[in-house]
Design a protein around this nucleic acid. Sequence first.
DNA 1: AGCAGTACTGAAATCGTTTTCATACAACCA
DNA 2: TGGTTGTATGAAAACGATTTCAGTACTGCT
Lengths: 332, 332
Amino acid sequence: MTVSIKDVARAAGVSPATVSRALGGGPVSAELRGQVEAAVKATGYRPNLSARRLRSRHSQTIGLIVADISNPFFTAVARAVEDAAYTAGLRVILCNTDENPQKEAMYLQLMEEERVTGVIFAPTRASVDKLSRGTYGFPIVLIDRAGRASGQDAVVLDNFAAGGMLVEHLVAQGYRRITGLFGNASTTGIERHDGYVAAMRQAGLVPAAHFIAPSIEAAEAEARQWFAQGTAPEAVIASNGLLLMGVVRAMRAADKRIPQDMAITGFDNESWTELAGPGLTVIEQPVADIGRTAMKLLLERLDAPDAPARKVVLGGRCVVRGSTSRAAPAAN
Amino acid sequence: MTVSIKDVARAAGVSPATVSRALGGGPVSAELRGQVEAAVKATGYRPNLSARRLRSRHSQTIGLIVADISNPFFTAVARAVEDAAYTAGLRVILCNTDENPQKEAMYLQLMEEERVTGVIFAPTRASVDKLSRGTYGFPIVLIDRAGRASGQDAVVLDNFAAGGMLVEHLVAQGYRRITGLFGNASTTGIERHDGYVAAMRQAGLVPAAHFIAPSIEAAEAEARQWFAQGTAPEAVIASNGLLLMGVVRAMRAADKRIPQDMAITGFDNESWTELAGPGLTVIEQPVADIGRTAMKLLLERLDAPDAPARKVVLGGRCVVRGSTSRAAPAAN
DNA sequence: AGCAGTACTGAAATCGTTTTCATACAACCA
DNA sequence: TGGTTGTATGAAAACGATTTCAGTACTGCT
């Protein structure tokens, strides 16, 4: 039925070992190598990766476990990881947890069964602190969310600084009643919140923050409520792309103008943010850098399993657009 | 080092065969089953999937090969496929070809080496016709793009009808100079184009179509040129989400209003289309249905390898928004 | 000529499972 | 009782590759 290395060996008139060596770049005479290549072509041989992985005892595979594959932030990171892995000769298994700790546990177990050489992981808040080095048979590099996570390699945004940056920008524009909307599933929400609070205090303003589910719907519901009750702030900071979109939706639904009725800013420079209303001011994350760096940390960790853990903190860039301008000051 | 089924067997005082049976739900007495479970827990045993797949000769895995993972259409389909696969007890390997035929060939080869049980595939125009049943060791279900593809299972949108729908909608709104922008990498572009042309003729209008690379940048460049040369049409139809975004960008850059300066409509009801300008009129594809149906066709194909090929054509829904309204007719 | 070293090659062991095959024992039936 | 099932179990083969080990043939050197 399916053609194995023995069939190729027979066709080439050599031993299976020689076929294996010829294909794997081992020491084989030019003559036999030619015969093997011809036999491979003639038989249509395809190596069986399961057998190869079993015997050679390395999978040449890493796992990438993200929280939400429909979030452009993660697809962008995934792309960078994929590219870096490819050039390192590794395959990537992409897993999507939907911010669900049970799925996280399931996928981590799957990674063990696949005998992956390492994992890049964006954990939920619930599980980030439970991770400890050596629990799993492979090294883990955290991305996007590291929490306190001592002892784990990680690459994250400087969330505290970024949260502060947005406040400072808004304050510079003259906004004072600034509300924050933060996701309650990840540690990034907390850190961005802390940066927001610190910068508000610094500016002599009183912070007003809400932690909500990280979904468009939750943010939209929250903002709608403000408009319904007339409690909308002058400006809002949304801690990720989904929340940002929810707020914009609510403003359209309530027929409010950006930024005249409420200024709006947040995280993740997704391509649509440029197009919504007057363009949205956002913190742009270095997504490609994050992916590349995570892969780099992982490879270095594989080389030196016992080296101390490293946490790489990357800076965000504030992209200013119309959604936070005060060109035409509202009367308040 | 790593614990194998033999270690579990020893710990449980049974043979490896019994452990295998206990874990796989075979006939094992309640007593031994208990001992095995205890031993598994005690040893921290994790089955080696490579060994399992090698011996059992089925991978319980399917491949999903898409053209662009950053296109929300494909992530949505992927999600549906993933869910359906999960309930069928199958794993999914997700591959991204970037519309590159070489990557397609590479991933198809990889799928052979992984011995997947089947593949769901969105091929580029270049390779769709080269596929023929039986070339690969597994069945393939085409999605989104099927071309003429006789003899292949497929699930696609009724692109011809959808292309016509947009024209009819625009004509009903009073637009007459309607230009089409179509992606040149996929067969969907061609079919949507054909539907566009037919409907234009039907309405007594003369079609004007451009085939361009399926990227935001290409569409933006094209539309910018219109404005620079003063050749912009009254309305434009973009054959996918990327092209649509490119056109919107160009209009913003040229400071044109939607729909007064140019009406705009296209494919894929991505969440941002609701937010851009006055909201964009689009054809919504039944993404979840597409994924589910593809998985269903694949499973049925595995059951009946010799049944005749089936092509499922799903209808699109026209979501009307402000970008095509003539409420305030422009002076032209 | 003899010896050491180098470069290939093939036989056989091995990776960690599942599956086949044989066996033991109990239950059932005539 | 004795034969026939049927069920639970273990020993051993098998899956398809890589890797180890033991040559063999050559080369170069003394």
